[in-house]
């Protein structure tokens, strides 16, 4: 039973890192800028998991003080990640505004086509 719990706990980390690497892969390989930004968001959300998962205590509950409960999960990572989520959407909004401007200047948001156009001029 204990080995099963260890394996499942470890599975969490492996999937988190898998998501992170998929995000990295999308950012590097895909030329489409909207897709790049979605990849960046995936990378960011995987970091949320990396922070939140160690804060969980098995048998604990959400950190809202109530006489009915004794054990609470760690509230500190939750606070950090709340900040990170909001900053993440701010970066996404700024990135998308840049994409709209690039689309107006070049008529495309594919990186390959933009490089081609730059070389022509």
């Amino acid at each position: 039973m204990e080995t099963l719990a260890t394996a499942l706990g470890h599975y969490n980390y492996v999937i988190t890192i898998f998501l992170m690497m998929i995000g990295l892969y999308i950012v590097v390989v895909r030329g489409n800028m909207v897709k790049k930004l979605v990849g960046l968001s995936i990378f960011q959300t995987s970091v949320y998991l990396l922070y939140i998962a160690p804060g969980k205590i098995i048998g604990g509950t959400a950190p809202i003080i109530d006489p009915a409960f004794k054990v609470y999960s760690n509230p500190l990572p939750h606070v950090l990640i709340l900040t990170a989520i909001v900053v993440g959407v701010a970066t996404l909004a700024l990135g998308l505004a840049l994409v709209v401007r690039i689309n107006e200047a070049y008529g495309t948001i594919e990186e390959d086509e933009i490089f081609e156009r730059d070389r022509e001029t």
């Binding site: 804060g55 969980k56 959400a62 999960s73 709340l82």
Partner: peptide, 11 residues
């Protein structure tokens, strides 16, 4: 599931 209800709401 990981007890981070505030973060879940924000997400």
């Amino acid at each position: 599931v990981l007890d981070a209800v505030d973060v879940a709401m924000t997400e």
